[in-house]
Amino acid sequence: TLKVHYKYTVVMKTQPGLPYSQVRDMVSKKLELRLEHTKLSYRPRDSNELVPLSEDSMKDAWGQVKNYCLTLWCE
């Protein structure tokens, strides 16, 4: 499951381990945003700071799954 905080919160079913490009595509379609305006980030467990997502950091983000849910933020 993927939970995304935006102006409102959406929850989507997804497969764990998807690459950033696929996750961003899913989120942009769900929120009806243009792909270039979809910026995603996540919060590591040991931090209060949001970390921007990229293809490289997506593996780390999937490591933050809690209760089968990855929580992301969209700007």
Rank of each mutant, 00 (worst) to 15 (best):
K7E: 13
E49S: 10
L53M: 02
W62C: 11
K30S: 08
L35R: 15
D46M: 10
H5V: 09
C69R: 02
G63S: 13
S21Q: 13
R43G: 01
K13Q: 12
H37N: 09
P16G: 08
Y68F: 12
Q64M: 04
T38N: 01
T38H: 03
G17E: 09
E49A: 11
V51H: 05
V11S: 11
N48G: 12
R45P: 10
R43M: 14
H5A: 05
Y20S: 07
Q64Y: 04
W62R: 05
T9L: 04
Y42I: 09
L40Y: 06
G63A: 15
S21A: 14
N48R: 11
D56M: 09
E36L: 04
L70M: 14
L35V: 15
V51T: 07
K13V: 06
H5C: 03
K29R: 13
V27K: 03
T38P: 04
T9A: 01
P19I: 09
T9S: 02
W62L: 02
K66P: 05
L33A: 00
S28T: 04
Q15E: 14
Q15I: 10
L33F: 01
D46V: 02
V10S: 04
L33P: 03
W62T: 04
D25G: 09
P16V: 13
W73P: 09
K3V: 14
M58L: 03
L72S: 08
L2R: 01
Q22D: 12
T14I: 14
S57Q: 00
L40G: 02
C69G: 06
D60F: 08
Q22G: 04
R43N: 08
V11T: 14
M58D: 01
D25W: 06
P52N: 06
S21F: 12
H5W: 01
L40S: 01
V65N: 15
L18D: 07
P44R: 14
A61F: 09
V11G: 04
K30R: 14
V10A: 09
N67R: 00
K39I: 13
C74E: 01
V4I: 14
V27E: 03
L72W: 02
S47A: 09
K13L: 04
R45A: 13
K29M: 10
Q22R: 09
Y8D: 13
E36I: 04
A61L: 00
Y8K: 13
D25P: 07
G63V: 07
K30F: 02
L50H: 06
D25K: 12
E32M: 12
Y20Q: 08
P16L: 14
Q64T: 15
V4A: 00
S21W: 13
D56W: 03
L33K: 01
G17Y: 13
S54R: 05
M12I: 15
T38I: 14
D56H: 13
D60K: 09
P16H: 11
V11H: 02
Q22L: 07
L40F: 08
Y42V: 06
E32W: 00
G63F: 01
V23K: 03
P19S: 13
V27D: 05
E32D: 14
T14C: 15
L33N: 06
S21D: 12
P16R: 10
M26P: 06
L18A: 14
A61G: 07
S41Y: 15
S47W: 03
G17V: 00
G17C: 03
P16S: 11
G63E: 11
L18V: 12
N48V: 12
Y6A: 06
K30N: 03
